[in-house]
């Protein structure tokens, strides 16, 4: 049972930075914009949040600083892609490289500082329930925030007028513009929100998940978040499931290795990726499912003509 608890909680925690970043990107892509720079925004968020903690800011403010730094980084992409209508792939990649460089530069001076990471909440009574307590009620606040933001984003996208407008812009910015919606402005907000969430995911890494700063500490999580959005065929709940599947496979392969399973560790390490590919293949069997929620104008630049 202890082992099950370890695997379950490990999965939930490992999935948290992916959930933040991928949900943010989902909103961006739903507005018809493709921002490939998640990795860079996460790194900037991670560096700023860590920096804020070292500078003595209280934890909630430090996390906010990380999120805002991610948003600020995304603004760079926004200006390039939305105002100057540069190629979104190129602008996103530039942001990924830029963010990695900027965060490395910022991090030069505080690399050796150990900090006290974000502490788990000990919810009175609930966290003491046998089994269920450690399974559900002993995470740090950001884990719950990730779940809450999933609920909020899923609800926003499918049940609110704002979500409908956002999706319309992602489907056909021309029509949205003709009806009178400020397409570029709304896309800016979506991009900023994506940056905020990526920054939050990065902050989670540097102040909660592994409370330290090392250069390029995201180790590719931004790219996985990007892939998760495709994997989820642009549905919020599938983003959540995908993040858990990926996190779970990572934990399981490590448990398998430590138990001495008669499988080479290289193969076990590839498991999360293999599982992802298998699911993608299954999804691709169903064309309709793939196309249903795909934002038709994704990555196409839009300039209001009138």
């Amino acid at each position: 049972m202890d082992l099950f608890v370890a695997i379950f909680t490990g999965t939930v925690i490992a999935a948290t930075p992916l959930i933040f970043a991928a949900l943010g990107e989902l909103v961006v892509e739903k507005s018809g914009v493709l921002n490939l720079g998640i990795e860079g925004m996460m790194l900037v968020g991670a560096a700023f949040a860590f920096w804020a903690v070292v500078a003595g800011l209280p934890m909630p403010l430090a996390i906010l600083a990380g999120a805002l730094a991610g948003a600020a980084a995304s603004l760079l992409f926004g200006v390039l892609a939305l105002t100057f209508l540069t190629n979104q792939y190129a602008a996103g990649l530039a942001l990924a490289i830029f963010g990695s460089g900027v965060s490395a530069f910022l991090g030069r001076n505080f690399g050796s500082e150990p900090i006290d990471g974000l502490k788990p909440l000990a919810i009175p009574l609930l966290s003491d329930i046998p089994v269920l307590g450690p399974l559900l009620f002993r995470y740090d606040p950001l884990v719950y925030l990730a779940i809450l933001s999933f609920v909020a984003i899923a609800w926003f996208l499918s049940r609110t007028k704002g979500g409908l407008i956002l999706r319309t812009i992602g489907e056909s910015p021309e029509i949205a513009h003709a009806i009178g919606y400020p397409v570029v402005k709304i896309r800016y907000w979506a991009v900023l929100f994506g940056g905020l969430m990526a920054g939050l995911g990065g902050a989670y890494l540097s102040v909660a998940y592994t409370p330290l700063w090392v250069e390029n500490m995201t180790a590719g999580k931004g790219w996985i978040a990007l892939a998760l959005v495709v994997f989820a065929t642009w549905r919020a709940y599938r983003v959540l499931l995908g993040a858990w599947l990926f996190g779970g496979m990572t934990i399981l392969q490590l448990q398998g290795q430590a138990l001495g399973l008669a499988v080479p560790s290289e193969l076990l390490s590839a498991l999360p990726y293999l599982a992802t590919i298998v699911v993608l293949v299954i999804i691709s069997q169903n064309r309709q499912m793939l196309a249903e929620h795909f934002p038709a104008s994704l990555a196409k630049p839009f300039r209001p003509t009138v």
């Binding site: 202890d2 082992l3 370890a6 695997i7 490990g10 490992a14 930075p17 890494l205 998940y209 592994t210 330290l212 090392v214 390029n216 500490m217 180790a219 590719g220 999580k221 990572t250 934990i251 490590l254 448990q255 290795q257 430590a258 138990l259 001495g260 560790s265 290289e266 390490s269």
Partner: peptide
């Protein structure tokens, strides 16, 4: 001794999970 290989030179997140895994298995 339980051994885990990350199959990566650098991945702090995975390293954390590996350490957690080893502790959960009694190391």
């Amino acid at each position: 001794c339980n051994a885990i290989f990350l199959n990566s030179w650098f991945d702090p997140g995975k390293e954390k999970e590996a350490a957690n895994t080893l502790v959960s298995q009694g190391c």
